[in-house]
Design a protein around this nucleic acid. Structure first.
Lengths: 147, 147
DNA sequence: TGATTATGGTTGCAAATGCAACTACACAAA
DNA sequence: TTTGTGTAGTTGCATTTGCAACCATAATCA
């Protein structure tokens, strides 16, 4: 059974929704103005770049970027069409696909980051001290802990 | 000019994205399981219900729920088709539309709330003390301040 | 082994979203 | 009055999302 949330908590949730919407919308607008692709593209490229091999099983990638599998499937279609990632069959698992980042993908990630970073500064970080940010991280991390 | 955000801040932003995605997805799933409409519907109904008159100019509503005008326009089409809101022409401004909540709209809002509330408890509030929630509210509110 | 169930991934179709262009009215200036 | 500019809201079209059904392989178990 789950207790009714306190009013305070409900307010916090409402604020989370609004803050997210507002900041994200501004950042996306900034990217668009710079003729860059949407954040989801960046997100995928970053997760791939982060691993040494530059490759992930599609479902692992999906877990990292929190996308439904059909959504990810089609996002990868688009990225692949642009030559940013490559899909290969997976040797260990006949069902699976390995997704790897290409040189063009790495290049795009590098190109987007400064603009994205600036936007994070402008619409998010500017309003928070480092101590604030740390606290926020702590609180939010609690929400994503399993169960 | 805007300073580069600190690493701490970037981490906080990343966590905000993930926490939002995760919690929202769970809550929406809960609503769907209860055969209820998506949160956006609730959001609109709630804002209308909140004002004494039960009526708002469409653009005011848009500001509250942070929806682009075309998106709101079509969301209202759907709500109106379901008899949850009513659009009337605005006497004071010939361009404008007044949106008012109907009895059915109020009823739906009332019906959704307990399920939504429970879900907030289960996927959000449960992880936070009241003090946490209050802090979170403070931090997030800073982000949505004008400028 | 063979039958069943679970997992990884894709796809057809319907609904929702984003963009840009549009209508209609309001307000201001000349 | 006319002319120009800004604001409220809608709409056509292309893209993206969501759902449900699907295919293929893996894993489980009798």
């Amino acid at each position: 059974m789950h207790a009714k949330p306190s009013e305070i908590a409900v307010t916090a949730w409402a604020r989370l929704l609004r803050a997210h919407q507002m900041v994200l919308e501004r950042i996306e607008t900034e990217l668009k103005a710079a003729k860059l692709p949407p954040l989801a593209w960046y997100d995928v490229l970053l997760e791939l770049k982060r691993v040494d091999s530059g490759r992930l099983r599609q479902f692992e990638l999906g877990e990292k970027v929190l996308l439904s599998k059909y959504n990810l499937s089609r996002l990868l279609d688009r990225l692949e069409k642009e030559g940013l990632v490559k899909r290969e069959t997976c040797d260990e698992d006949g069902r699976g696909a390995m997704v790897s980042i290409t040189a063009a993908g790495r290049a795009l990630q590098k190109k987007v980051w400064p603009i994205y970073e600036r936007a994070i500064g402008k619409y998010f970080a500017r309003h928070l001290s480092d101590a604030d940010a740390e606290q926020l991280t702590t609180l939010l991390t609690r929400l994503t802990q399993a169960e």
